[in-house]
Write a protein that binds this DNA or RNA. Structure first.
Lengths: 112, 112
DNA sequence: TTTATTACCTTGTATCACAAAGTATACAAA
DNA sequence: TTTGTATACTTTGTGATACAAGGTAATAAA
């Protein structure tokens, strides 16, 4: 197997780990809908596809981290706008800590 | 579902994403065997269990990132010492870049 | 010979990301 | 009116893989 194949695979795994964190982060700044979140993540080189993000948003909604409402679109079908809840904001804070901890752990592992 | 449940789950996912990276990093410093790598990861709060690490080492060996040799143990059964290959070192360098990129991506997402 | 310690390995289950295909709306062009 | 295009949400099937749990085996001490 090619080396870039390994690395791409690991990159994918790394991204997976922070995907929920990224989505909460985006929604903590302003309400948004799946397609828009998708574009934002792609711009930030966090490659994700529809089949990943829709079920994930539904899971987060079911966990009480998000709510949603339907809104008319300027053109095309209505959009499902997601909004972060108080519980979602508390979870986001916890994820901030978790992320910092992992970044520090890796830093120590790589330096030592 | 409790909020700490969400966060624990996300922490687990984050750890998963960097597990292969951590193992290559540990082996880049000195040859080691599964049980020892496991302890080292646990000390660094990268919680992993046997059923995770054994198949992972086998996968990395099959990908040509590692080789192994058997060595007598001072007590108990022989140990399977893994050694990183040149290909493994190149993969590790690529993973360093990938990790830095993700850390930077998250920093931007969280700050903006 | 039984127990403890160390070590490696496998199996069954659940989760989840992704690819792919499907459904639906709105609008413009033919 | 029909067709094409863009936007948007949803579902299904597949494969990868982490984990829990249990199994195998070597050594030494009780």
């Amino acid at each position: 197997m090619d080396i870039m194949n390994n690395v791409e695979n690991v990159k994918t795994q790394m991204r997976r780990g922070v995907l929920e964190y990224c989505i909460l982060s985006i929604l903590s700044k302003k309400d948004s809908y799946a397609s828009s979140i998708l574009s934002e993540l792609k711009d930030a080189r966090m490659i994700v596809v529809e089949g990943t993000i829709y079920p994930l948003l539904i899971r987060q909604k079911n966990q009480g981290l998000l709510t949603y409402r339907w809104e008319e679109s300027p053109q095309g079908p209505p959009r499902k706008y997601y909004q972060i809840t108080d519980k979602g904001r508390r979870a986001l804070e916890e994820m901030d800590s978790a992320w910092q901890e992992i970044v520090e752990t890796i830093r120590l592992l790589r330096d030592k």
